[in-house]
Every structure is written in C-alpha cells, then in structure tokens.
Design a protein around this nucleic acid. Structure first.
Lengths: 350, 350
DNA sequence: GGTTAGCACTCGGTAGAATTGAGTGCCAAC
DNA sequence: GTTGGCACTCAATTCTACCGAGTGCTAACC
C-alpha cells in the first residue's frame, strides 16, 4: 500500500485575540448544532462586548484567510479544516469527565484475557465513551525473538508449527508434507526446529539441514513456511469498534457507505493511523490526511507504548465537527491506561 | 443471551397457479425496482393472458390472505414477509452465474493460510459476490481433544500456556505466578502438564498434583487457567464482511444504524444464525426470526461441515427485498466449497 | 361464473409561486 | 474602529394546483 503523505497542517499564524475568540465561538457553536453560525449568534455567545456588525467584519477577514467558509451567501459561517486546526491547536482543552474517568478505570480493573481480547474490548470501550468509531491498532511482533517453536502432528501428513515470541504472541502455521510422517519423526523434527530457531528473529538466516531424510525435509518445510509468512506477520492487528456510530456521525447515506467501505480495508486504516503518528500529530482533520474518501472525517490518535517503545495506537474517527476535546481526552486517557496495563507487572504481558 | 424463538414460517397453503404467478411477478418487480407494483405492470410482465382488472381482483385476495400489502390506497402492492416466504419456498430457483462460479473457484484455489484467515477472506468474498453483508461463523473447538500443551516462560513470573487441539486450533493463556520460577522448573512443569492433559477435553477432570513445590503449583495454576477459560473457548468466531453494504441496502440512515449496531454484537449474530439453522431453514425473512432491530432484513444461511459434522455456517444479510436466488445460490456454493476445502486432503485441516 | 372495459375516486408526488427569515455586505454616522 | 440601519440574497418553507398511477366497483360480456 502506498503511503499517503500527510499534508502538514497549514502554519496557523496566530490570530489576534478577538479573531480567535470569534473563531472559537463559531467552531463551538457549529460542533454543537451542525448549522452554519451567524454573526449575531457569535455576538451573543462569546463574551465579546461588540456588536454583530463588528463580528461580521472580522468574519470577512477570517473567511479571506481561510478559517471560515460560507455555504452560500446569506448563510452563516462554517469552519474550514484550517479553522478546526487552529481551534484544536490553540483553543480547546479537554479533560475526561468524572463518570467516564470512572468507566475507564473500572474497565481496566476488570478486563482480563489475552492482548487481542483486551484490545478488542478497549475498542468497544472507546467507542462507547465517545460515540465515535474507534480504531485500536496493535503492532506486530516482527522484531520479537522466538522463544519456542514446536511441531505438532495433526495426522500423518498435516503438521502444525506453533511459535511463541518474546512479546507473548503465538502463531500457528500448517505444514503439509508430501509423505507420511511418524510421530517419532515429528518429535525429532520439533526438537531440531526448536534448537534451530530459538532466540532468532523471523526472517533471519538459519542453517537448515541439507539431508534428504524425512526429518530434515520436515524441518526445511517448516522453516520455509515460517519465513514465507514473515512479511505478513508484521501485519498489525486492527480492532474497529462502533462502526454503527458512523451512521450517527454523517447524514448522507452515501457518505456513510464510503466511510464504512474505507474502514473495511484494514491495511489502509493502519497506515492512516501510522502516518498521523509519524508526523507527530494527534489529530488529522478533513483533507489533512490527504485521503479522499475520508475528507469529511477527523481522526484523533494516541500512541500506546509497551516497555517504553511504541507498539500500537488508539484512535477515534468522527466527522470534522467532532468534539475534539472529548475525543482527544478519551483517547489519551485510554492509551495511557493501556500502556500502564501492559507495562504493569501485575499482569501478563501478552 | 436469551435464545429468541424463530417464528415458524406461516404455513403457506398452496396458492392456485394464477395467484402464484401474480405473486411471483409482484415480488420480482418489487425486488427489482423497490417500488410498489401495480396491477397493470403485473399484467404486462407476467405471461398471463388476463387483463389488469383480473389481476386486480386476485390481488385483493392475495392481500386479504396476507401475501401482499398496500402502502396506501392508490399505490401498487408490496410483498409482505409471508409473500416473500411463499416466493422463496415455491417459486425461486437460482444458480450461480458463470463469472461468480469462476470467482469462487479461483478464490478457493488460491486461498492459503490458517482457518481464521480463510474464514475472514471468505466473508469478504461472499460479500463481494452478492453485495450484501456476509456473516461467517466458525464453531469453537470445545469438543476437540488436546494434542499438546506447553508452558513457555516469558520472564520469571509470566508464563504462557500454549495449547494445540485436535482440530488444529491453538490457544494461549497467560499465567502469572506469585513467585519467581526458574527455567528448569518451567520445563518440568511443561512436561507434567503435557502428560496430564494430552488426549483430554477441556473441562475434563484431571488429577492435579497436590504438592506445594513450585512446579506443582505452576501446573495447578496452568490447569486452573485453562479450565477457567473453557466456557469462553466454545465461543464461536464470527467474521463479518462488507458492512458497508448495509448502507447500500437500506435507505434510512436510522435503519442503517440499527442494523450495524446489531451486527456489532457478535454473540447475537451467532445465535441468530444458529437459530435459523436449528430450525432447518436456510432463509429467515423479516420478522420471522423474531428479532426486532432486524425486522427489515432477510438472512440467508448455509451450513458448513467438516468431516461430516456441522462446524459453522456462512450467511448473508440483506433487505427483505434481497435477491434471494442469487444470495442463496452464492451462500450454498461458498459453503460447499468451504466444506470441501476443509475436508480436502490436499490442505491443512486447521 | 369468471372476465373485462369503463369509470369515478383516492392520494402521494411534483412543480410553481409566494412568503419567510436568517444572515449578509455596505455605508454613513458616531 | 465601532455601530445601527438598511437593502439585498437566497435557502427553506408553505401553499396550491394538478397530475397520474393505481385502485375498487359495476355493468356488460363470453
């Protein structure tokens, strides 16, 4: 998949304080009502002691500078992506509400099971907290060394290579041999495989036996299968929660369809989240991520680390008029808890 | 989860041939156009040599008997669930098109990887074939005997129990011990575990050592963890493909939301599919499955067997005015191929 | 008896026209 | 620089008229 380039958010030259206040009022109101916001509404809402006429003239400037847009003459203003960007960078600050704080704590206090399960459930949690669609990405174990390899015989021809990695992940791969194999041979092959691969990293060159007996062939086949899958294995896991929220966030059925169709392509979602993180951002608004079908979406992300190094991310996807503060606060809180959960020594790492 | 009761489809007393033809014409036309169908359209489409007036009077009967409904006076007729049911039971017959037949064959010829991957991809395939949302359910391995158990040490306190079942599935469970364990102890515990559990079924009573040394404790903890998870493990896997198709199938955003929200509850989806199969049906139309949020949906299912016994199902979910013949044909074709794929001896079973 | 042509009737959908009103841009006065 | 005033714009709403697809009924017809 081609990496898209994140359009670096337009440099938001600081606005003077009054313009900023007006912009903020417009954004707040629009997020709230989904309607274009008029000058009089701003004059009333914001605590500026100025008339609507003044607000109006400021708005003209803000529009010229690209922070606001007008759906049509004689409608109110609507924030542009740039407008939201300024809002996010300068104006909003959010903190997770009491109740939600509690909900997150409860969740992590009670959650149990393997990483995959925890991530999947976390995804549901995030989506419930915010009523946006959530994306939880767990990075693969490409770099993890192998703790154990075992060959298990299903029947005379079918064997299973079961591999355990240092990060606690486990994979299995079917191997089909072209000849019947005895249990003794499988056991011996298993032993050799173990000796051969333990401590190595997937993809590393290993010395496979060149003999042509059953055991050696078996070992070669197993190693080949394992290595063939290596590229796939760095494939991250993605958990998407609350896709039904998409239908709440957008009103056009067509938009809903597009967004859902995009979310179905997991690789794409991963790379989107990754790109945003790579740019050191925590929010990508509208066309900032340069990805057409999601032009009407904003994506909030927060990295998750395990033992200090990045190993995943949590994200939220909503309309550009999403509640950024809430979403960002929730994402940050959850990612922090996740990090802690996996770092914590009272829990299994995997 | 409470099992819903499937409303046994109303006994469809046979209709006389002309009524049947008319009903068929209405259903076909409505599926095609999504519009109410008028008597003249029927008179024209069907090859009955009767006037619209005659059709009209027949339609009155069909409506009285519950096969058709009128959205409002002076609109055409629309099939009721009962109407669709008659159609499905008596009138439609479908066969998979050339191109799709080929697509299915190609898919199964090229697909590789473990069961989970195959099922997930199958789900995508089905959805692409039909442009409906697909559901693929794989039953759990509750009954499978254990082929191998292994304890792997992640660090001094964290161990991983890796279990391989006869059906080729692999599970892992974290075990946290309250004391530091040496590698030697883990190896010994692993050996004992293996000896203890091999050949048994999860949940079976086993003789655990009662000693209090590290190894014995480790074994006890591992067995306990494994057994604690037993009920969860029969949990089936669900793969849902093409949820964006929901947005194509229904036009009200609210309906889309409801259906999506329902699909998010995997347990519910599984039990829905299971219920339909239990009743020996292959289609549940509208309210037949007695499940309110999906009242405007029809669900087509086909069972998948491995080595002769039921082990999953594939399904399609669309609007009640779905293309039953296509959907049923596709579901059947795919389930047959899946069955063959897993039975086939040129492929790994797991 | 079943079938059909004819006809009055119903009622959702559409197309215009008229109206409303939120909101703007501009300007002159402060 | 700010503001009140005012003309103007234009989407959204309401109303009306009307159309026409489709019905149900009936009387004639085979």
């Amino acid at each position: 998949m081609a990496r898209r380039t994140i359009r670096q958010p337009s440099p938001t030259a600081d606005l003077d304080s009054r313009k900023a206040t007006i912009l903020e009022a417009v954004v707040r109101e629009h997020i709230d009502t989904a309607q274009p916001v008029g000058s009089s509404a701003v004059a009333a809402t914001s605590h500026l002691a100025v008339s609507s006429a003044t607000v109006r003239s400021e708005m003209v400037t803000l529009e010229r500078e690209g922070y606001l847009a007008q759906p049509h003459t004689s409608a109110g203003r609507v924030p542009t992506d740039k407008g939201y960007r300024y809002f996010v960078d300068h104006l909003q600050a959010g903190i997770v509400g009491e109740a939600q704080q509690q909900q997150i704590k409860d969740f992590f206090a009670n959650v149990r099971g393997e990483v995959e399960d925890v991530l999947a459930q976390t995804s549901t949690l995030l989506s419930q907290l915010t009523s946006y669609t959530s994306v939880v990405v767990g990075t693969g174990h490409a770099q993890s060394s192998i703790l154990s390899v075992q060959l298990v015989s299903l029947d005379a021809r079918h064997q299973l290579v079961v591999t355990v990695f240092a990060d606690g992940s486990v994979t299995k791969h079917s191997v089909l041999s072209s000849f019947d194999v005895s249990h003794v041979e499988v056991a011996e092959a298993s032993r050799q495989l173990h000796a051969l691969l333990i401590g190595t990293v997937l993809g590393a060159r290993v010395q496979v036996p060149s003999r042509t007996d059953h055991v050696a062939t078996l070992v070669r086949e197993a190693v080949a299968t394992l290595h063939a899958e290596a590229p796939t294995l760095e494939g991250e896991q993605v958990f998407i929660g609350g896709s039904s929220k998409v239908a709440e966030s957008f009103d056009g059925v067509e938009t809903v369809r597009q967004v859902l169709a995009t979310l179905e392509q997991e690789l794409l979602v991963v790379s989107l989240v990754q790109d945003i993180l790579d740019q050191g951002l925590s929010v990508a608004i509208g066309s900032e991520h340069g990805f057409q079908p999601l032009a009407s979406c904003a994506v909030v992300v927060a990295p998750v680390t395990i033992d200090g190094h990045p190993s995943g991310a949590v994200g939220l996807l909503g309309p550009t008029r999403m509640k950024y503060s809430e979403a960002m606060a929730a994402a940050r809180a959850v990612s922090a808890q996740l990090t802690q959960h996996f770092d914590g020594d009272d829990r299994a790492k995997s």
